[in-house]
């Protein structure tokens, strides 16, 4: 396996005598987008603050390309681009002036590079306007632009989908996937909303009450999901469909609804049922697996 770009080892944070983060460990590899998911107050931002050196680490360590963020801060942070909590920038300056400020703080960021990142996040039209005139979505893009300026190998984005409309989320997903694949970056994205993460991330870590309770690839999360689910077959004629299914699957209960029939099936049973319907001249218009979305699954996991 490749060498991880980030290693988090048994990270803990105690604030005012209370353990907020209780020992989190995970690694991030080049080319992957890692979703850091948890309900509000789970400890995502607190973990991220420690990862980028904004707050001290009570116990454990964070290594970025092998450099400890606590002991070798400048070397470690030079590889990181990030947004923590909100992309707060100087509102009385234009987007471009903001980027210039950050460009001066990292070695070797040219004017050309500023223009490049502005283009990547598609802010060309507004970059010379004051940030005070930006929507939250535009500020998120500007936040992403400053994170990319110095061509880091690691991106750490705290709730970057906040304030984005569906089109904005779609764009963000595309940039992040592209950056991960083309630049071989390791990207950590935190969120309390699963729905967006499902298509953005390769792996997901679920954090709750300061503990990482599960780390899995998105595919595993979905595919492990072999329990029976309600499946809606949009069919016509409905009564024929019901008859055929009840004949072949006598143990199943078939429910008739306006558009078709609903049966409780596991994922692997679906092809057999649809083949059966088609071979009996039932017109099949659609199949909806009332699959538990990642969202429901997430709720199930975190509310246990």
């Amino acid at each position: 396996m490749e060498k991880p770009l980030i290693q988090i080892k048994n990270l803990k944070k105690k604030i005012k005598g209370k353990w907020i983060i209780k020992g989190i460990s995970f690694d991030l590899y080049p080319g992957e987008v890692f979703g850091f998911l948890g309900p509000n107050g789970a400890g995502k931002t607190t973990t991220i603050r420690m990862m980028v050196g904004l707050t001290s680490i009570t116990e454990g360590e964070v290594l970025i390309e092998g450099y400890s963020i606590a002991k070798n801060y400048e070397k470690a942070i030079a590889k990181v681009g990030g947004i923590v909590e909100n992309p707060d920038m100087y509102k009385f300056l234009t987007g471009y002036k903001n980027l210039e400020l950050y460009a001066r703080m990292s070695p070797g960021v040219s004017k050309k590079r500023i223009d490049e990142v502005v283009k990547i996040v598609e802010l060309e039209h507004a970059i010379h306007q004051k940030v005070s005139t930006y929507s939250l979505g535009m500020r998120q893009r500007l936040g992403l632009a400053q994170a990319l300026l110095h061509q880091p190998s690691v991106l750490i984005l705290d709730e970057p989908t906040n304030g984005l409309d569906p089109a904005g989320i779609h764009d963000l997903r595309n940039y992040l996937r592209r950056l991960a694949k083309e630049e071989q970056m390791a990207i950590l994205v935190s969120s309390h909303l699963l729905s967006e993460m499902e298509m953005m991330c390769d792996r997901i870590g679920i954090i709750q009450n300061g503990e990482l309770i599960r780390v899995e690839t998105v595919r595993d999360l979905i595919e492990k999901d072999e329990q029976a689910k309600q499946v809606l077959f949009e069919v016509e004629p409905i009564h024929v469909a019901q008859q055929v299914i009840e004949q072949h699957f006598p143990q199943k209960r078939v429910e008739r609804v306006e558009k078709g029939v609903i049966i409780s099936l596991s994922r692997s049973e679906i092809p057999a049922v649809s083949a059966l319907l088609v071979s009996n001249q039932v017109q099949l218009f659609g199949i909806q697996r009332k699959s538990k979305s990642l969202e429901e699954k997430f709720l199930e996991i975190t509310h246990q």
């Binding site: 400048e74 942070i77 990181v80 909590e85 950050y102 703080m105 990292s106 110095h150």
Partner: peptide, 13 residues
């Protein structure tokens, strides 16, 4: 303004 965060996550002491 909250800008301290982005100011501090730079390779500067």
């Amino acid at each position: 303004m909250g800008t301290i965060k982005l100011l501090m996550i730079r390779p500067v002491n």
